[in-house]
């Protein structure tokens, strides 16, 4: 039973987008701050820090999660995936990312990382996800630019391409 004192940092070891990472954190450090400022993974954005806006949504051990509602020390040993890990390789985009681009499903791009992580998780968990499921999951995100409709269309396009075995571009 490790007890971490309030004013001490400890080494948190986990995998970030498949790579082993170790950085120090004190007990109160939020995972959102930890990823962005200690690990340099600034693609995950912070919009409200109380779990409503969804901008900081990432994947922890395969399930979607708000990074702002998680302590860094909680993810010891966990597998963390963020928007930086979505593309198959530098210079290419995943099917979902490409659909967002084609459907103009982003404008300022600030909320986008969280939305991509939620949809990417949904599509891997439920390849048959329909519009109702997509809308339900998107309900956990706020976007001020797009009015959401292009996001829904991009998601539907992506899931149908994924179902038909289309590969990344």
């Amino acid at each position: 039973m490790p007890r971490l004192r309030r004013d001490e940092t400890t080494s948190v070891r986990f995998t970030l987008n498949g790579e082993a990472v170790s950085r120090r954190a004190d007990p109160r450090m939020l995972l959102s701050d930890f990823l962005r400022h200690e690990c340099g993974a600034t693609g995950t954005h912070v919009g409200c820090e109380h779990g409503v806006c969804g901008a900081c949504t990432i994947r922890i051990d395969g399930t979607m999660a708000r990074a702002c509602l998680t302590l860094a020390v909680q993810v010891e040993g966990a597998e963390i995936e963020t928007v930086e890990g979505l593309a198959p390789e530098p210079g290419r985009l995943s099917v979902l990312q490409d659909a967002f681009r084609r459907h103009h499903a982003l404008q300022c791009g600030f909320c986008t990382a969280g939305i991509l992580m939620s949809l990417d998780t949904l599509f891997s968990d439920e390849p048959e996800a329909d519009e109702v499921r997509i809308r339900d999951v998107l309900g956990g995100h706020l976007c001020r630019c797009t009015g959401y409709e292009p996001i829904v269309r991009a998601a539907l396009d992506a899931v149908s391409r994924l179902r038909s075995g289309k590969t990344n571009v």
Binding site: R36, A41, T42, G43, T44, H45, V46, T82, V83, E84, L86, A87, L93, Q97, F100, R101, R102, H104, L106, G109, F110, T112, A113, L116
Partner: peptide, 18 residues
């Protein structure tokens, strides 16, 4: 297609806190 999008979709945007 917007030239802005690939970076934003890949998490490499450069917002002030980044």
């Amino acid at each position: 297609l917007r030239v802005e999008d690939a970076a934003l979709l890949s998490g490499s945007g450069q917002f002030i806190d980044d």
